[in-house]
Simulated assay, not measured.
Amino acid sequence: MCGALWLALPLAVAEPRCATDDLGQEVCLDAPAQRIAALSPGATELVWSAGAGDRVVAVVAYSDYPPEARQVPSVGSHTRLDMERLLQLAPDLIIAWVTGNPSGQVATLRQMGLPVFAIEPRSFAAVSHTIKRLATLAGTEAEGFAEAERFAAGIAGLQAEFAAADPVPVFYQVWDAPLMTVNNDHLIGEMIRLCGGDNVFGELDRLVPRISVEAVVAANPEAILAGGMGEENRHWLTRWQAFPGITATARDNLFFIPPSLVQRPTPRMLQGTRLFCEKLEIARARR
């Protein structure tokens, strides 16, 4: 009996793993992934969340969380991959960013026969689903599924807490030059809605539209939230102090949000969403 069980173990470990990515393509591996390349900072976090951080052999620039990710070899930036270095690291699974990675380079990787799993979570539910799919491909379901459920439960709790919150007209600044925001279809747009915010640029067609300072002044948001270049850089908010006619400026509702907590589709968005909601509660109290 024991000998038969021992012989069966290698077969269980080598069981094929399949999942459908965000381009609708099924990716199948002959065995759980052992050498994973994550081609965006968000993808790196998600692989760790799925319980497979010890399998990551390649990351890109700004992959700084968790701290262990900083020790993994970099293969360029998410916009320009060092293909030679990436191939030297021999990944058996590549996690690509649908709209962030160079389409030509990603296509080349596929043509070479490398398994590429493309992701772009655009909802809280999709973040959980992505973690589960990555865990399936890595064979780390126990840890990955638990983390996905923890995140989903946390988001559900915030949704219940702020379901009846009074609306606050919000401008979220995603970039400074050019000035950029998000529409309602963006994951950050879902965050704004959950907290009772009314995205003043939510109806624009583009997911991440460019706008003008004049458009922000005309929209007259009650709260302005922004990140910046880095986790402690608040200078993007100083520009709005020159416009006292904006309600957000007049009431000092100019709030800094660490960008990695809201601009990466990872479980840390739970922390970022809680912070976002707290800022809007401050804005409500200042009415």
Rank of each mutant, 00 (worst) to 15 (best):
L275P: 03
E147I: 15
T238K: 08
R251N: 06
E15I: 06
I257P: 00
C28D: 08
Q263S: 14
R110V: 05
R122I: 13
M83W: 09
L158D: 06
N220K: 10
G42D: 07
F117N: 10
P73F: 07
I36S: 01
C2T: 14
S77H: 12
F201S: 06
A33S: 11
E147H: 15
L237V: 03
L237H: 00
I131F: 07
A164R: 14
A138N: 11
V127I: 14
D92M: 10
V75Y: 00
N199G: 11
P258Q: 09
G100M: 10
D54H: 15
P102L: 12
L158V: 12
S128R: 05
G197N: 07
H78S: 09
T136M: 11
A242N: 11
E231K: 07
E147N: 15
H186Q: 06
P169K: 05
L137Y: 11
E214P: 05
V27Q: 03
G196F: 00
Q34E: 13
T44D: 02
L87Q: 05
P66Y: 13
E120K: 14
E143T: 15
A43S: 07
F162V: 10
P209E: 02
A226G: 04
P178H: 12
P41V: 12
I224R: 00
N220L: 05
R287M: 03
S103F: 04
E26G: 01
P102G: 05
L261G: 07
D92S: 03
G53Q: 09
A14P: 04
R55T: 05
G197T: 05
E278Q: 11
G53V: 11
G53K: 13
A37M: 07
L204M: 13
C2Y: 14
S212A: 09
Q88K: 08
M1P: 01
I282N: 01
L254C: 00
K132E: 04
L207G: 06
H129D: 04
P221D: 04
T99R: 13
L109F: 09
A148E: 04
H186M: 06
R80G: 12
P178S: 10
G3Q: 08
I211K: 13
